[in-house]
Write a protein that binds this DNA or RNA. Structure first.
Lengths: 110, 110
DNA sequence: CGGTTTACCTAGATTATCTAGGTGAATCAA
DNA sequence: TTGATTCACCTAGATAATCTAGGTAAACCG
């Protein structure tokens, strides 16, 4: 059974890219950022996050660099690349189109 | 690679249930209805539709009955059950919550 | 020095949807 | 009357995204 906080499939990459628009961030912080800005409605699991980051780095959308976190832990900082910014545009547009389409169906007069 | 008309995962049942609010319909008509009301933005594939209908009937959300279509073909007409109407409410609420949550993240100030 | 938090990682399961095949009956044009 | 097209249904297997459930190690705190 799907949990209430499960993500809508296909939106994770977009959310991560969007989080990185405000500047480089490490994985753990991205997770928290998404949780907080969604007012706790979204909870990205670590088992989803890290493979996604790995995949997106391979795609060239983000760039990773080891550093030290604000809590003095070693952390991998991710930066949005130019390709990542373009990808965010594509995914964001797609999301808006889908949202609109679904709402057209949902709001169709009875 | 995901196609532009691919559905957002998790929304198919909701769309089908919603289509049936206007009255009983056969599978093929449900497919076309979703395509049309979404202004061609959504295209449910038959290989997604029929298994979904089967699954939803097993869940008790819809009820099937053989009949004859407006084109004089044999067709299976689906009707929304009371449980299906409740399920639509649940899924619809969940969709709105998710949409809002994602848009909170997407619209977060830079 | 033991527990908690931070931060990362991975294998395998789950599940939804799509791809790509198929059937058969009705309609329509040649 | 026959061949092509449309309607309507069905299914097996592939694909892919996310989650579950495990794990490591270092830093901090009492």
């Amino acid at each position: 059974m799907k949990d209430k906080t499960d993500l809508l499939q296909g939106t994770l990459d977009m959310l991560i890219l969007r989080a990185l628009v405000t500047g480089p961030m490490h994985g753990f912080a991205i997770m928290n950022r998404i949780h907080q800005t969604s007012e706790s409605a979204l909870q990205v699991e670590q088992g989803s996050l890290y493979p996604a980051l790995y995949r997106m780095e391979a795609q060239g959308w983000i760039h990773a660099e080891w550093g030290v976190s604000e809590n003095n832990r070693r952390a991998k900082y991710y930066t949005l690349t130019e390709a990542g910014r373009r990808q965010l545009g594509v995914e964001s547009e797609n999301w808006n189109r889908m949202c609109k389409a679904i709402n057209l169906v949902m709001d169709f007069p009875v």
